[in-house]
Design a protein around this nucleic acid. Structure first.
Lengths: 341, 341
DNA sequence: TTGAAAGCGCTAACAG
DNA sequence: CTGTTAGCGCTTTCAA
């Protein structure tokens, strides 16, 4: 295990000083082409690789950007990470990731880890459990922060989200158009912003169409198939069960389909279903699931772009006004809501 | 934007030296409890956060471990990353990730980025395109490396994989048991180790059951639904088409089902299907897909554990013998292969 | 155009 | 038990 070459080694070999080597390597203007080329040649010979811990320490820049998500394995988040990673690595940053597992405590610890690693910026989506936003607001004072999807409504923090309210309205509008009249909602925890917005949109759309909001048609659940099954069974047990369900995630929608079929009922003939998120396989199941696309990859990329912009301002010492980007969701109509009227 | 506190600030406030502070903070034995507690108190007051660039530079340890995968958004890889991240972050490492997008060139560049970041170890799965393994073999000389799933058969490099040969045999055995006789294979590129092994297992199992291997029953394709459709149509156009298909990915299996149904044929009555990987929704589609589970999360976790072990040896200056871990895949029988005999 | 010198924040001998 | 000193590899004035 030989020691990696440093700029001192290169300097020694050429009989010049490390500072000259540094300048040559960093495209500094005040250096002769001759020296520069010589340096580059020797650097290659010694297979020199810059030590970014050292340059980071010196310049106060680690070249690291962190991404924190509840869980890497969820289709939505992994796709968002993909979108962000591509933008960030193209700009020369290394991307560090961590998961909160929806725990406020773990989330804090991961943010601490980022702080120690001296990341230049943090892109994050809140843990479901998080209700105390101070770890984020205080973080944002020192480190550029961009939240996505599960954001907070703080003017000082940049955020990217989809218009969840509009998405929910589109979903309900569509169900009404298809002739469904008693529309239930498998909702998320209302304090999580996107979930709350979806609930608001659901209520708004019902009212718009002159449909009553019924408390027993609103069920809160975590976004898993299992919870979807349980919640749907509860709905089906009502004396007057819904004839359509708007689920706040596709996983819930899968559960709903499964519960409905277990009762010998059919989707979409008896009960219509619309999900949310457009998971990878939502179009491949039978019946295929009508859903609201959130453009997760675009969200990740947009968050990364805002981060780059913010970093750029900071570098120039310019003041930065936090950005809010709102993407327009898209309804994707598939079999699960296509009632034959 | 105030400057973050350093150990010098803490030392100044207490009238001691930075080195004493360092010892107190790192649980060094030669320090009085009194001083230690005082230091900890002041550290908290100043909301001190260690600078791991500085300590990393000094100690030659960055606290960073890198994971390189073809694409973060594939269910298999994101789950493996999740498994690895949990082990690594529990051990106090920060995890940096990058994707090769199956390009050998990008893969190289990402590895370079890791090298600059002075990561302590690299966990990777090869790009599909990669046939020249030198970037990895030469890397492994300097930096602990663990490959998973898409590995190379180099004794000097640790690896974690599933027994793809056995998995393929299980798949074919099962189809034969169900009464299928003309079994085709939607295969991957043979130079990618797991895909090659699956082809070998397929051939071996055919022979074991006294079934002929027919070249026209073997089709190479990338693991996507689209390619699955195309390849399956080719198979169906044969004068004597297969009555079962073993696909090397679930996505291909989805495509196969779709192509078969388009011909007015049924799965599993006319043609049986077995996939590979157990994607998240493979049990939820109709018909549900029989598949071979690879335990992706376990693979990621195992790779991380081997890495920790390897790092541990290195720290103690002990020689390390590269580990190979082979997980046993599990056949999950679902509707797509359940022929009514 | 190049060199000399200082220092980023921390740790590890070694001395006291 | 605590302090002194030196230096990890790099960048950045400032001077030559």
């Amino acid at each position: 295990v030989r020691k990696p070459a440093t700029i001192v080694d290169i300097a020694a070999k050429l009989g010049i000083t490390p500072s000259a080597v540094s300048k040559a390597l960093n495209g500094h203007p005040r250096i002769s082409d001759e020296t520069r080329n010589a340096v580059i040649t020797v650097a290659r010979e010694l297979s020199y690789s810059p030590n970014s811990l050292a340059s980071g320490l010196r310049r106060g820049k680690s070249g690291l950007i962190a991404i924190l998500v509840p869980g890497i394995h969820y289709g939505f988040f992994s796709t968002a990470i993909k979108g962000a990673e591509e933008v960030l690595s193209r700009k020369g940053y290394n991307v560090i990731i961590a998961q909160s597992k929806d725990s406020a405590d773990l989330e804090r610890r991961q943010l601490d880890g980022f702080r120690r690693a001296k990341v230049e910026g943090i892109i994050a989506s809140l843990a479901m459990e998080t209700q105390d936003y101070r770890p984020y607001t205080s973080l944002a004072v020192d480190i550029p922060l961009v939240l996505f999807d599960r954001t907070i409504s703080d003017e000082q923090i940049s955020g990217v989200m989809v218009d969840d309210f509009a998405g929910a309205v589109k979903a309900v509008d569509h169900l009404v158009e298809m002739g469904y009249k008693r529309i239930g909602h498998l909702a998320g925890l209302p304090h999580v912003m996107p979930f709350g917005r979806r609930i608001d949109g659901y209520k708004y759309a019902l009212a718009k169409h002159g449909l009553p909001f019924r408390n027993e048609y609103l069920r809160h659940c975590a976004p898993s198939k299992e919870e979807g099954i349980i919640a749907t069974e509860k709905l089906l047990n009502l004396s007057e069960p819904p004839d359509a369900i708007f689920a706040h995630s596709d996983h819930l929608a899968f559960g709903a389909v499964s519960a409905i079929r277990n009762r010998g009922l059919s989707v979409p003939a008896d009960i219509g279903i619309v999900g949310f998120s457009n998971e990878e396989l939502s179009g491949d199941v039978t019946p295929s699931i009508t859903t609201v696309d959130q453009f997760s990859e675009t969200m990740g990329a947009a968050a990364a772009e805002i981060m780059i912009d913010q970093l750029h301002h900071r570098q120039l010492g310019k003041p930065y006004t936090p950005q809010k980007r709102l993407l327009s969701p898209k309804l994707i109509v598939r079999q699960s809501s296509l009632k034959d009227k």
